[in-house]
Design a binder for these strands. Structure first.
Length: 214
DNA sequence: CACCAGGCAAGTA
DNA sequence: TACTTGCATGGT
């Protein structure tokens, strides 16, 4: 695009919605659990699953890795895809045990590219989940792209329909200050505006704070 | 009833 | 490489 509208849109969204204070969690471990559970799933369902683990006192690395996939699946059932996600979550936790000496902080404090490679090697962790963990738990300067980002920006003709994850991420990061707090807030604001005004069944965004960019 | 939700990997050609 | 399909609960 001719001028950089990425920052302008960020400011519009922040003015309209205010700070979103993501990621909602009480600990880094809870955050990464949520990152896996929320894959293609409504956050309301994820909250129920996390609450089940909390009530059982299981939100500790040593306790979670001691569970079988079947046992873990039973707790996270409300999040959907529970058999799949139980395996994926255990894959992630086992990587932390084996590659980072049982320390999630060791992973989060690793160099960005090293941590990202390790996360992407885990079966069940793709780019969005990896980047979410790196940004929201690790505080790394990496922009998280998701289906909402693609929908909101392509629908407003700010990105082509076929733009890839990596290309979208590069566009944002090339046009914004390298600021983890800004990346954090921006992604959350995109989710907010998509949920409120840019749903699949609402092709036109009347009343949307981004209407002027159409 | 249909459709959607803060994806990802495996299978197919 | 480029589609397609399975995974699954809960809210609208």
């Amino acid at each position: 695009m001719a001028e950089n509208r990425f920052l302008e849109i960020y400011n519009s969204l922040l003015d309209y919605f205010g700070p979103q204070n993501w990621w909602p969690s009480d600990s880094s471990l809870e955050m990464i659990v949520g990152a896996v559970l929320t894959q293609n799933t409504n956050w309301q369902n994820v909250k129920k699953a996390i609450e089940n683990l909390k009530k059982a006192g299981l939100l500790e690395l040593e306790l979670l890795v001691a569970l079988t996939p079947e046992e873990l699946a039973n707790y996270i059932r409300p999040a959907g895809y529970y058999n799949l996600k139980a395996k994926r979550l255990l894959n992630l936790l086992h990587m932390i045990v084996n590659e980072y000496e049982w320390s999630l902080n060791n992973l989060l404090e690793d160099e960005l590219e090293n941590g990202r490679q390790k996360l992407l090697q885990v079966n069940g962790i793709g780019e969005e989940t990896a980047d979410s963990i790196l940004l929201y738990a690790g505080g790394h300067k990496v922009f998280v792209v998701d289906a909402y980002t693609h929908r909101v920006f392509s629908r407003h003709n700010l990105l082509a329909e076929e733009t890839s994850y990596q290309e979208i991420q590069e566009q944002f990061m090339a046009n914004l200050p390298a600021d983890a707090a800004l990346f954090n807030e921006y992604h959350a604001l995109i989710v907010k505006v998509a949920k409120e005004f840019c749903r699949k069944k609402e092709p036109l965004c009347q009343h949307c704070p981004l209407q002027k960019y159409l």
